[in-house]
Design a protein around this nucleic acid. Structure first.
Length: 563
RNA sequence: UGGGGUGUCGCCAAGCGGUAAGGCACGGGUCUUUGGAACCCGCAUUCGGAGGUUCGAAUCCUCCCACCCCAGCCA
């Protein structure tokens, strides 16, 4: 057998698999699974797990199942199932015909429980939830055996069957594994493996009124599916002895559980609880709000699955807790979009420019390059006329030394257009703000080249007033003001929300070529950033989301100046 | 005071006894009709700390310190 080519960077899980393969463990099979609970939306932390699981399977010519861990019907819903499948597919992965549910195994799992009882390794316990907690002991004190621990196999069998039959009320009895109440690992102190839940299940309906706990169902589901490497997050490390215990007691196929550190990202939160709160309290407009780290949110924001996959590869896989800089995600995004996004000119905060020596009724169609990184993307025509808009920030009446853009008396280039010189400035009488620039153009510089070789220090984007499309543009920024919101102790995380996480600009002007752009289409607005068409767009108005800004050296200079 | 983990550059992260990869960020430069992109250069004499073993230690041993997770009939 030849070992596969190792393409992506090394990590401890891949090294383990490589070792297993060398020893021909599992006959050289690699079979993973991504096991979401259908109780919420997937976020970028899940993307890491998806990329690891599906990625490893792909790399080692193995398989990866999608399995819904639906053992708690009181929290789960089909609503989430479709969304999760969508997100996994959108990310670029495919489970073929291997879509499973833990609930597919309820009969088998029940049978395993019976086997445990028959072996004397499980018992029905009548303690109340509170009593179970008391008997469990604490972190430093051992627990005490349940008074029901020594029931006979016959009695346990009878009771468990009657639990299943619905004879007892919710919370009155549970099935527990008989392990060791003195263990330092709380998970081993006779854990509950079945509880009564008189709730109908989104897939099995009212067939069951007892449901298995995660610890029992998960490993056995892995086993049933022939999973070789069961990859999960760090907090389950303590559960591994229990994972192993069930498998060993039952003598079934034994997958190996491997734990890695979950992803944390700066300026956002990743816990389902907190994300849910943001939605419920209206801090964001929904799970797919472009500020959310959810996959549906990132998608609406304009992120590409390719960028997310590359990101997941670059952050690596390890066991230490970490918080990855949002800048890395943004870098991966820009890297991808730079090569693919068509360029377009859009003025976000318009400043009117009148070219005094340009004919009133003249309109020229100037040729513009669609993507300087990719000649195959061709060119387009952009209308030029006497009245234009430029970006408000591209003009300063009293420019500082390092400002290269337009100022009174100064000449700059309009991209793909002409050199223009500012000859006059009209200001608002009360505010003193510039409202209109009077300029002249040099007809010899058509296309943006000067025949005399004269240089300008800046190139501005612009749009012809008469031809511009109106658009709404939503400028998104980080959701939180602190790099690590959950690090801030004794503070309600909501108080750390960035009040300026979104700014809506309603009077934006965009070149006409984007008129027919469909929702989801991505563009680079030259000199500004990457934007995508939001589904809120209508025939009347285009709505764009700013996906990510371009790197901005000028902004950096300004900031440095301030300090 | 129990059990399980983790500590390598500002942030990630390789490294597995032979003398500290890479990416992001940052700083400097080249080029440029995006102050974008691209390209070049710089950026840990040191690996949580202290001892020890060894010709040689981030890697092995000992002790210490810090941080994370666990007391749901959640996953």
């Amino acid at each position: 057998m030849s070992l596969p080519n190792v393409s992506s960077p090394p990590n401890f899980i891949r090294n383990m698999i490589l070792e297993d393969l060398k020893k021909n463990k599992n006959d050289g099979r690699v079979h993973t699974r991504f096991p979401p609970e259908p109780n919420g939306y997937l976020h970028i932390g899940h993307a890491k797990s998806i990329c690891i699981n599906f990625g490893l399977a792909r790399e080692f010519d193995g398989l990866c199942n999608l399995r819904f861990d639906d053992t708690n019907p009181s929290k789960e819903d089909v609503e989430y199932v479709e969304s999760i499948k969508d997100s996994v597919r959108w990310l670029g992965f495919d489970w073929d015909d291997r879509l499973y549910y833990a609930s597919d195994y309820f009969d088998q799992l029940y049978d395993y429980a019976i086997q445990l009882i028959k072996k004397g390794k499980a018992f029905v316990c009548d303690l109340s939830p509170e009593e179970i907690r008391e008997f469990r002991g604490t972190l430093t004190e051992p627990g005490r055996n349940s008074p029901y621990r020594d029931r006979s196999v016959e009695e346990n069998l009878d009771l468990f069957q009657r639990m299943r039959a619905g004879e007892f009320k919710e919370g009155s009895r549970v099935l527990r594994a008989k392990i060791d109440m003195g263990s330092g690992n709380l998970n081993m102190r006779d854990p509950v493996i079945y509880r009564i839940l008189k709730v109908s299940h989104h897939r099995t309906g009212d067939k069951w009124c007892i449901y298995p706990m995660y610890d029992f169902a998960h490993g056995l589901s892995d086993s049933l599916e022939g999973i070789t490497h069961s990859i999960c997050t760090l907090e389950f490390e303590d559960h591994r002895p229990l994972y192993d215990w069930f498998l060993d007691q039952l003598g079934v196929f034994h997958p190996q559980q491997i734990e890695f550190a979950r992803l944390n990202l700066t300026y956002t939160v990743m816990s389902k609880r907190k994300l849910l709160k943001l939605v419920q309290e209206g801090h964001v407009h929904g799970w797919d709000d472009p500020r959310m780290p959810t996959l549906v949110g990132l998608r609406r924001r304009g992120y590409t699955p390719e960028a997310i996959r590359v990101f997941c590869e670059r952050i690596g896989v390890a066991k230490r807790d970490s918080v990855v800089d949002l800048a890395l995600l943004e870098h991966c995004l820009r890297e991808d979009l730079n090569l693919r996004a068509p360029r377009v000119m859009a003025v976000l905060r318009p400043l009117k420019v009148v070219i005094e020596n340009y004919a009133e009724d003249l309109v020229e169609e100037l040729e513009a390059v669609n993507n300087p990184e990719d000649a195959a993307m061709g060119t387009r025509k952009v209308p030029f006329s006497r009245v234009l808009y430029i970006e408000r920030d591209d003009f300063m009446e009293n420019p500082p030394k390092k400002f290269f853009r337009l100022a009174p008396g100064r000449e700059v280039r309009l991209r793909y257009g002409y050199y223009i010189k500012c000859v006059d400035l009209i200001k608002d009488e009360t505010s003193g703000e510039p409202v209109e620039l009077r300029c002249t153009y040099d007809p010899a510089t058509r296309g943006g080249w000067s025949p005399d070789g004269r240089k300008v220090k800046a190139t501005l984007h612009w749009v012809s007033a008469a031809h511009a499309l109106n658009a709404e543009v939503r400028l998104y920024d980080r959701l939180f003001t602190k790099p690590d919101p959950s690090e801030e102790k004794d503070v309600d995380f909501q108080s750390l929300l960035n009040p300026n996480s979104v700014e809506v600009l309603k009077r934006c002007k965009i070149e006409p070529s984007v008129a027919a752009a469909a929702p989801g289409s991505r563009f680079q607005f030259e000199r500004q950033g990457y934007f995508c068409v939001d589904p809120d767009s209508s025939n009347d108005i285009l709505v764009f989301n700013r996906t990510v800004q371009l790197r901005d050296t000028w902004a950096k200079i300004m900031q440095a100046e301030k300090k």
